[in-house]
Design a protein around this nucleic acid. Structure first.
Lengths: 154, 154
DNA sequence: TTTCCTGCAAAAGCTTTGCAAGTAC
DNA sequence: GTACTTGCAAAGCTTTTGCAGGAAA
């Protein structure tokens, strides 16, 4: 999401990361995915292009990416195995669906929701917690009408 | 949080759960904790009262609790092993601290932040996503001034 | 008495690590 | 040439599962 195609090299460069074929494919897979893939799913996507790629490399790269703010882990529902990843590192809104998947809210709604939170409240919170607050995300748990919530929000 | 002491039996009863010593101690540990304990930490707390308790029982009970909305899992930072749990199932605000822990925002700030999101936007989102939206939570990533974000929001 | 829960132990699954070979810069 | 990455395989952890015995209602 943050960058496309040939700009990937520049993104990595800015982070002091070497641009390898594996990382490039992984980042592309992450950026192009509209859902929130697991490490395993990303592995499969990258493997289509680089058959010999190792799952350990996927994990290592995801770790490095997240250290540099190029992706983030997102909460997953109980029972969903593994973590999920997201290349959208900007403030946004997630919705957990009844089937256990997690989707982003549409961009415009996402922005309106994020922006509806007064900056002054955020500043107050930062003050109280004694830290600088950077990324924000809002999660909703979606369920079908009448369905009993299973509480497995994350 | 939801209930105290002898009310625990009633809480379980309402959910159709049997009130065992293990579950009672676990729920109490969860409710009294101001941080967000891992299963392992809860295990240790319960074990002080019930030396023979099994970790599998802790997991089973946490699973059952979350199915009945008595607790929820919360996002954890990368590198923190295991999930963390929270007996506060009401809408609230989490802050991930630089040390990897996650804390609740103070109650009053939490409420003001949650309430600042217009119900109409939430309704619009529910409409678009085609689901009923129940629980909401807001997460912030806190960092020390000047510290580079590790992106491990979750 | 019936049904549900616990404890144990083993299994399963996700993620990390060590190291030698290979690659980016 | 140097420092960083990869792939492999093994280890490490967390979480789940099967089952017999035990406890709650």
């Amino acid at each position: 999401m943050a960058c496309e195609g040939k700009d990937i090299r520049a993104v990595f460069g800015r982070c002091g990361l070497r641009c390898t074929r594996q990382r490039e494919m992984l980042y592309r897979a992450l950026a192009e995915s509209r859902s929130h893939p697991t490490a395993e799913e990303l592995f499969e996507i990258v493997r289509e292009r680089i058959p010999g790629v190792s799952l350990a490399t996927i994990y290592n790269a995801l770790h490095v990416f997240s250290e540099h703010g190029l992706c983030r882990r997102i909460p997953v529902a109980w029972g969903n195995r593994g973590c999920r990843f997201d290349a959208n590192v900007f403030d946004h809104v997630h919705v957990s669906l009844p089937d256990g998947s997690t989707r982003d809210a549409p961009q415009d709604l996402s922005e309106r929701i994020i922006q509806s939170i007064p900056r002054q409240l955020v500043a107050e919170l930062a003050e109280v917690m004694g830290v600088e607050l950077s990324k924000m995300s809002v999660h909703f748990e979606g369920r079908r009408d009448g369905e009993f919530s299973d509480g497995a929000f994350q």
